[in-house]
């Protein structure tokens, strides 16, 4: 019931945001198209690389396309739905966050609801196209569990990136200068996860496995989908269970956010 109430409010907020964007139709189409082109160039780079060398550490273009598609669709979803946290530092600075606290609903829900960026459909559609092309040309047998795993990975990934947006927003409670550190992890993470994790150095891999569990939302599940062992030695159950860590990451960051809200309320702006 509580969840339905929250969802109903979120949909209303989102409706407001979307209608606002549709008032400027030409601008919307240009932004969506630009988003598609800009993010699509990444895949051209990967294609050029693999075309030159044949494969990356045994990963062929279609297989990398699977990784690329999963992470890009996930990131596009989080950019579309969780960008409300992106403008949050401004709200703290201007005092608009007080207005949110004056309303009898969860602060996080109100913050996330204020912005649903539809033009992110650009990255979403090119990521999905690459994913579908990869999935089609791999000759993998797409059983129901595999389709579910792929979907769960994408949703887990969307949660993971949303968690990073939440973390960045949380920093605004302590510092008014925008710290780009989290941005580095977010965008760097997307770039990183477009390639198989096994190509990187151990400390880098470990960071994106244990600190920010990016490996869990495409690299590990991809092994289950492709039905092959991980050269890094991860167990098979983890390949199926990994997406859960994306959801978990979001839950943890939301707790940190709540801590930030308490700090804000006890110190003032």
């Amino acid at each position: 019931m509580k969840f339905l109430n929250a969802l109903s409010l979120y949909l209303r907020y989102a409706g407001v945001s979307v209608r606002g964007q549709m008032q400027y139709r030409a601008s919307f189409f240009m932004m969506a198209f630009g988003n598609l082109l800009l993010t699509g160039i990444d895949f051209l780079a990967i294609w050029a690389l693999i075309d030159r060398f044949g494969s990356i550490r045994g990963w062929r273009l279609q297989e990398v396309a699977l990784l690329y598609g999963m992470v890009n669709v996930a990131f596009a979803l989080s950019e579309a739905f969780a960008r409300g946290f992106d403008v949050f530092p401004n709200m703290v600075r201007s005092g608009d966050f007080d207005r949110i606290l004056l309303r009898p609903r969860s602060a996080a829900l109100q913050v996330v609801g204020q912005e649903l960026q539809v033009f992110r459909i650009g990255r979403f559609s090119q990521g999905l196209a690459v994913l579908l092309w990869g999935a089609w040309s791999l000759h993998v047998v797409w059983t129901v569990p595999k389709v579910l795993l792929c979907t769960a990975s994408i949703l887990g990934g969307a949660c993971l990136f949303s968690g990073l947006f939440v973390l960045q927003a949380t920093l605004a409670f302590w510092t008014t200068s925008t710290l780009e550190i989290i941005n580095t992890v977010t965008y760097g993470g997307v770039e990183t996860a477009q390639y198989p994790l096994s190509v990187y150095r151990p400390w880098f891999r470990q960071f994106f496995t244990y600190v920010v569990p990016l490996a869990c939302i495409n690299y590990l599940p991809a092994h289950a989908i492709l039905e092959r062992p991980d050269p890094l030695g991860s167990p098979v159950w983890l390949h199926y269970g990994a997406p859960a860590f994306g959801f978990l990451f979001l839950l943890v960051t939301l707790q940190i956010w709540e801590f930030g809200v308490r700090h804000y309320r006890s110190t003032g702006s």
Binding site: D96, R99, L102, P104
Partner: peptide
């Protein structure tokens, strides 16, 4: 806050881009 009303003269509580009527609709939901 469910039981009190607050107005800040310096800063509006309304949604900048929304028509007034829709603001009320949103508040009914909130």
């Amino acid at each position: 806050v469910q039981r009190i009303g607050v107005v800040f003269g310096q800063r509006t509580q309304l949604w900048w881009d929304l028509p007034v009527q829709e603001t009320f609709e949103l508040l009914i939901e909130i």
